[in-house]
Design a protein around this nucleic acid. Structure first.
Lengths: 119, 119
DNA sequence: ATTAATACATAAGAAAATTATGTATTAATT
DNA sequence: AATTAATACATAATTTTCTTATGTATTAAT
């Protein structure tokens, strides 16, 4: 997963890229460790991204042209900021829309709109 | 995946057990092929479960005691109906609630409530 | 002085799909 | 009548994506 205290690991698979790309929208620049902390904070520890999952994903997104990096030295420590490219913005929008549509489909399929769970 | 014309494969990973268990609720009994067709129909072809994914999943759920089977012969053709056990009903509820909660978390994380996509 | 936190990275292994293949019956089409 | 499509099961090889483990190094806190 990304170490999830709350969700069974297989549930969350496949959403990491969507989460990362979405966090970087509005020209925000973030570095890896910051992403892990922000997601942990925003989800009240429900989703905790592991470094073993995050860094390869960031490298893949960079390789495919969705992200560019900016190295900054904080004292002697390296920090790699990630920024969305124009292509990355398109990918981000596609991914988020796709996930939103997927949720809609799943809500219908699991009959969730008539239950309490989706409050 | 389950052959998804619409969703990128990694998005859907991990929801198959939840989908299957949920379809079998209310003491409904279904066989494998029927499940693939029902999901295809209910999602307007957006989610198409492949046999390579479904059968191993059904066998796993049976092995762990969530499902029992009932063989029926239609002429010379075998049909294996799957039925939720009492344990399976608990698993089903847990899984569906977990997914509902996960969607809630993701809606917040992706800031979907303030956009058009979640209509 | 030691531990925790920050910050990066990669590699081995596991889980859950995909893709491909196989068997066999029955219905539909040409 | 012969072929194709649909029904219905199954498994095996491969790929993807994550987990778990490990590694290096700096800085802050105890």
């Amino acid at each position: 997963m990304y170490i999830c205290s709350m969700y069974s690991s297989e549930l969350i698979k496949g959403t990491l890229k969507t989460i990362v790309l979405n966090l970087l929208k509005d020209n925000r620049k973030m570095y890896g460790y910051e992403i892990t902390q922000e997601v942990k904070k925003m989800t009240s520890d429900k989703i905790q991204i592991t470094e073993g999952a995050l860094y390869p994903t960031l490298h893949a997104l960079e390789k495919q042209g969705d992200l560019i990096t900016e190295k900054v030295y904080i004292g002697k420590r390296v920090r790699k900021y990630y920024i969305l490219t124009d292509q990355g913005k398109v990918t981000m929008t596609d991914r988020v829309n796709e996930f939103a549509d997927f949720m809609k489909t799943m809500r219908f399929l699991l009959d969730l709109d008539s239950t309490v769970q989706n409050a």
